[in-house]
């Protein structure tokens, strides 16, 4: 039971990550794939923040003259960086998708493959 409570958040985070991975593998729509990637990323943020939490702790902002328990600030810093980088990468992915749509008139992976097969030297 203690194991269930202690590890519950990790397990749910893994379920969320696998939901994102499933979208990326099983959906042919390119925008949907990027949505799956975003889902996966946010789940990883959640995993890190979960590991930084200390029972009975408070936000890592120093208060003078009080002995407080602070949660671990290091995962917060790492994830701050990761959030911004994640948005930058999905912006590049979406720009590529816009260009693919202009070139092939479709954002469905299998349709694009068919077009490529019809035009081998394209």
């Amino acid at each position: 039971m203690t194991q269930l409570i202690g590890l519950y958040s990790y397990w749910v985070v893994i379920v969320l990550m696998m939901a994102g991975l499933y979208i990326m593998i099983a959906r042919y729509n390119l925008v949907k794939k990027v949505i799956g990637l975003g889902l996966f990323q946010t789940s990883i943020f959640y995993l890190y923040i979960t590991m930084g939490k200390v029972e009975g702790g408070t936000a890592p902002i120093l208060v003078e003259g009080k002995e407080l328990v602070y949660s671990n600030p290091l995962p917060h810093v790492l994830i701050l960086t990761a959030i911004v980088v994640g948005v930058a990468t999905s912006a590049v992915a979406l720009a590529l998708i816009v260009r693919i749509h202009e070139t092939y008139g479709s954002i469905e992976e299998d349709e694009i493959k068919d077009i490529e097969a019809m035009e081998p030297d394209a």
Partner: peptide, 10 residues
């Protein structure tokens, strides 16, 4: 979970 900076960035 006490990650206020991450929360407002997210």
């Amino acid at each position: 979970m006490d990650a206020v900076d991450v929360a407002f960035t997210e």
